[in-house]
Simulated scan of single mutants.
Amino acid sequence: MKVLIMSDSHGLTQEISMITDRHKQEVAAMIHCGDSELERKNPLMEDFLAVRGNCDYDDAYPDDFVENIAGKRFFLTHGHLYNIKMTLMNLAYKSEEIGADIICFGHSHAAGSEMIDGKLFINPGSIRQPRGRMEKTYAILEIGAKQLEIIYYDLEGKIVEELRNAYQTE
């Protein structure tokens, strides 16, 4: 089962539409980790599990969201309320409290994934203003029976191999 994850699109619409059209038939869920700068009722956002970022002004978005997908408990947040630019510790504590397996967040615009104490932390980067890389990125997580594989893509849909990772699960 696959899950599309993006963040920090900051007002982009054509790019969200392009990514959605490219992958909607292959994914079971789509996540936006905030700073879309679009209203929740915007048709582009209707198929996304989405949270509110520090640049989102529509309070129809929740700050945090928990969703069970493919037997995994996902915790979605933008990250600004957890000080993620300094540390993942606050986010790790919150994920422990709610029993999350996979934590999706944005805010820093820095793409990457990391397994910490059996929990997978995923930042898909930004499709508008990446930091630390040239590529504007989003990610697809593939959930297997014993493995989680995270594949990052650029806007053109090419895999960014340096960011690709597979993590074993129990």
Rank of each mutant, 00 (worst) to 15 (best):
I5D: 06
K72G: 06
Y152W: 08
M6C: 08
M6E: 06
E46V: 11
Y152Q: 09
S113R: 04
A29M: 02
S126D: 05
S9C: 11
S9E: 11
H32V: 00
A29N: 04
V160T: 05
E67I: 00
A111D: 05
A28Y: 04
H23P: 09
I84W: 02
I151R: 12
Y93G: 07
H78V: 05
E135W: 06
E162K: 14
K146L: 12
S108V: 00
M134E: 14
S108P: 01
E161A: 13
I151A: 09
Y61K: 11
I16W: 11
Y82C: 01
L76Y: 04
I98F: 00
R128P: 02
S113M: 02
D117C: 08
S7Q: 09
S9W: 08
A70S: 14
T169L: 09
M115R: 03
I84E: 05
R73G: 04
E142K: 13
Y61S: 11
T13V: 15
G99W: 01
I98P: 02
F105V: 00
I69T: 05
K72S: 07
Q147K: 15
T137M: 10
E39W: 03
K2W: 04
I16L: 15
A110V: 00
G79T: 07
D154G: 08
L4S: 13
F105W: 00
M18D: 15
P62I: 07
V160L: 04
N42A: 06
K41T: 10
A145S: 15
H78F: 02
D56T: 12
E67M: 03
G71M: 04
K41S: 10
P43G: 06
C55S: 14
D21R: 15
M134P: 06
K2T: 08
L120F: 02
R133E: 10
P62K: 12
H80Q: 05
L49F: 15
T20S: 15
I122K: 04
F74I: 01
P124S: 03
L148T: 06
A166K: 13
G53R: 05
D21G: 13
M115S: 07
Q129I: 07
T87Q: 12
T77V: 03
I31E: 00
R73M: 02
I122N: 03
L163N: 09
C55E: 11
S108E: 01
Y93F: 09
P62C: 11
K146W: 10
A92C: 10
E162L: 06
H10M: 08
R52C: 11
D58V: 13
Q14M: 15
R128V: 06
I102F: 00
